[in-house]
């Protein structure tokens, strides 16, 4: 079952990212920061700028946003973090993390549970969570398909066409082909035994996505495809691509180079629309915004020629994406 926004309610916000809020990613929840304070924009460089080191060992000089970034970096470097993507867990594990926090989030989580979305598959909060979640949910959809052969064949045909998109956007074959192969061979193994004679199972899919080389290769191909789609359909996206921190409108090419073709940079509406469109996907984004007093907004992205095709469902909390799992799956 899919919820669509109630037409009597105010329209769903189109700009999903809310940079003024602390990402509610469990990797960062221990980090205390005053979320009400206005964060000054980060001074990020432009694509070609070559810049100076300015003594960031002096922590007092850093803005809260820089401290936050550094904190994340330190945690990623030194502390064992959650797996790149985890096994399915009951929604109650997510709920327990909000029990001392916002009642609005609890209400939204309870609404999801009451409506059958009782589990979640969590991804690491490394800035690649959208691409990793989407990639996993995409491949998993073939495993659970009733017509595996047909679903895999259609997907491989679409994917094969995407290499054309990526090439036309100026990304060399040498650059994308290894990443592309990782994704394609995983999908092929849903119906055709791989080089070890094995068909893909849920367990093997999880293991593959937990292995950095396979997982990051797939993330990278999806990033290339997203950037290529935006560059080739720039008239659809110009005016909508904004710097994630300053919110200033950027030109399409700088935006793609700095925030799409680079690992660790979060995706927003534009990237989601571009990727779901390039893959001909239907996708729902369940948006926990901590504001709604009842229900949860499901933001629909409809790019499958079959409008009724079952959408992939991701859970979005400001700053983070996971996979939302319905109890009928």
């Amino acid at each position: 079952m899919t919820q669509t926004p109630d037409p009597s309610l105010p329209p769903t916000p189109r700009a999903i990212r809310k940079p003024k809020e602390l990402p509610l990613d469990s990797d960062t929840e221990d980090f205390n920061m005053d979320t009400d304070s206005e964060l000054p924009p980060l001074h990020l460089p432009s694509a070609s700028s070559l810049l100076t080191f300015s003594g960031n060992d002096e922590l007092s000089d850093l803005t809260p946003a820089q401290l936050y970034e550094m904190n994340q970096q330190l945690m990623n470097d030194s502390v064992p973090t959650r797996p790149l993507i985890d096994a399915v867990a009951p929604m109650s594990t997510l709920r327990s993390e909000y029990e001392n926090g916002s009642a609005a989030f609890l209400n939204e989580i309870d609404w999801l549970i009451a409506n059958g979305y009782d589990s979640v598959r969590r991804t690491r909060g490394d800035g690649d969570c959208f691409y990793r979640s989407l990639g996993f949910a995409y491949v998993e959809s073939f495993l659970s398909s009733l017509e595996k052969d047909f679903a895999v064949a259609s997907s491989l045909s679409i994917l094969s066409g995407t290499t054309e998109i990526v090439s036309r956007a100026g990304i060399e074959k040498m650059v994308y082909e290894d990443f592309y192969e990782q994704l394609v061979s995983l999908i092929q193994s849903v119906v055709t035994p791989d080089s070890h004679g094995l068909l893909l199972t849920s367990e093997r899919l999880l293991a593959a996505f937990q292995e950095a080389e396979v997982s990051n290769s797939i993330v990278m191909y999806l990033r290339f495809l997203t950037a290529a789609q935006i560059r080739l359909h720039r008239e659809d996206y110009e005016g909508f691509v904004v710097h994630p921190d300053t919110k200033e409108i950027m030109d399409v090419d700088s935006f793609c180079a700095q925030f799409v073709e680079t690992m660790g940079k979060e995706a927003d509406n534009v990237e989601i629309q571009a990727l779901s469109s390039a893959l001909h996907l239907n996708l729902d984004l369940a948006y926990l915004n901590g504001v709604r007093t009842s229900g949860v907004d499901f933001i629909p992205f409809r790019n499958d020629p079959d409008n009724m095709a079952k959408p992939l469902v991701l859970l979005y909390r400001p700053g983070h994406y996971d996979i939302l799992v319905h109890n009928t799956r």
């Binding site: 070559l50 100076t52 650059v175 990443f179 680079t262 690992m263």
Partner: peptide, 21 residues
Amino acid sequence: PHVYSNGHICASILGSEWSPV
């Protein structure tokens, strides 16, 4: 101005803006 005497280079493309492209 962006090269330290130990050879290290401060360039965004070698850090946060590196891309496999």
